[in-house]
């Protein structure tokens, strides 16, 4: 047994701890030289080239050429002169906007109460909201369809309403998760500080919580808005025969009209780009915050 005096010295200087740390460091150094983490990137880079970058160029090529292989913007002019195509674009935007709006209205309170409210850190509730994501998409919509036909009788009577209901049901978890993640990371001391400085619970929410959850709102919107513009499977399943952008692309491609199909893909791409640019304006601020380490 080590004498008490020797132990007391050790305890005070912490000398033996230092040795252990030093040895650990040596070990990791040796291990590192065997293998570079960068090499792990190679499979994904190859995948990216063949399945993302290359197809994008193919789409661009078809969109900007006519049947003879000459460069032209005629395809675009035709799209914007075609009232039916514009109608589809407007209808898709309406579906996407309403879906996003209802998702946001339903998801925000849910996310807030799970992150900071009564169901704080309650994983069961979070699970209940995320669980539908584990179930096959068509199965989910089929189940919803059954419920709706029980209520409405004939589904064909309200095609637009049914589309929105099923879309909201389908995309809700994609809105809840980013919102939950943003709100749960808000430091409690910020809410306490607001409360301490004289804000009521309501004022704290509108002056602190809501402005600071904008990054989550934006990423939720991007997760829901874009897919709901193209998800024509939902429309098919609820017997909604109106076309949205996704169904338009599908119909052109299945008729081997690569040019018009590509044009619509490019138009969607531009819409995505615009939304991303707009949201970057908001999230640019929060990127700064991340650097400051204050909230994220």
């Amino acid at each position: 047994m080590i004498s008490v005096n020797a132990k007391r010295c050790q305890h005070r200087s912490g000398a033996d701890h230092e040795v252990i740390i030093y040895e650990n460091r040596m070990e990791t150094k040796v291990k590192k030289s065997y293998f570079s983490r960068k090499q792990l990137m190679i499979p994904y880079a190859v995948f990216l080239c063949f399945f993302v970058v290359l197809p994008l160029f193919v789409v661009l090529y078809y969109a900007f050429t006519n049947g003879d292989g000459n460069v032209s913007i005629h395809n675009f002019v035709r799209f914007f002169q075609n009232s039916k195509a514009i109608g589809t674009l407007v209808y898709s935007l309406a579906v996407a906007l309403l879906t996003t709006l209802f998702c946001l209205l339903l998801a925000y309170p849910a996310a807030y109460f799970m992150a900071k409210g009564v169901f704080r850190k309650n994983h069961t509730f979070l699970m209940l909201f995320v669980l539908p994501m584990w179930i096959n998409f068509t199965l989910r919509i089929t189940a919803m369809k059954e419920i709706l036909s029980l209520v409405e009788g004939n589904l064909a009577m309200h095609p637009f309403l049914n589309t929105i209901i099923c879309m909201v049901y389908d995309f809700l978890p994609f809105m809840i998760l980013p919102l939950y993640n943003t709100i749960v990371r808000l430091d409690d001391s910020l809410l306490e500080a607001a409360h301490d400085l004289g804000a009521t619970k309501r004022q704290t929410f509108f002056k602190v919580v809501l402005p600071l959850s904008i990054p989550g709102i934006i990423s939720g919107i991007t997760m829901v808005f874009l897919p709901s513009m193209t998800n024509y499977v939902v429309l098919d399943m609820v017997y909604n025969s109106t076309y949205i952008m996704g169904s338009l692309i599908g119909s052109y491609f299945s008729a081997y009209d690569w040019h018009n199909g590509s044009v619509i893909s490019i138009i969607l791409l531009v819409i995505i780009l615009l939304i991303t640019l707009i949201s970057d304006k908001f999230t640019g601020q929060s990127a700064n915050e991340r650097q400051g380490g204050a909230i994220l």
Binding site: S189, L190, E192, A194, D196, V208, L212, Q285, G292, I295
Partner: peptide, 11 residues
Amino acid sequence: TVFQKYALFPH
């Protein structure tokens, strides 16, 4: 109160 981690409002 003055908080340990400042708790300034980042926005």
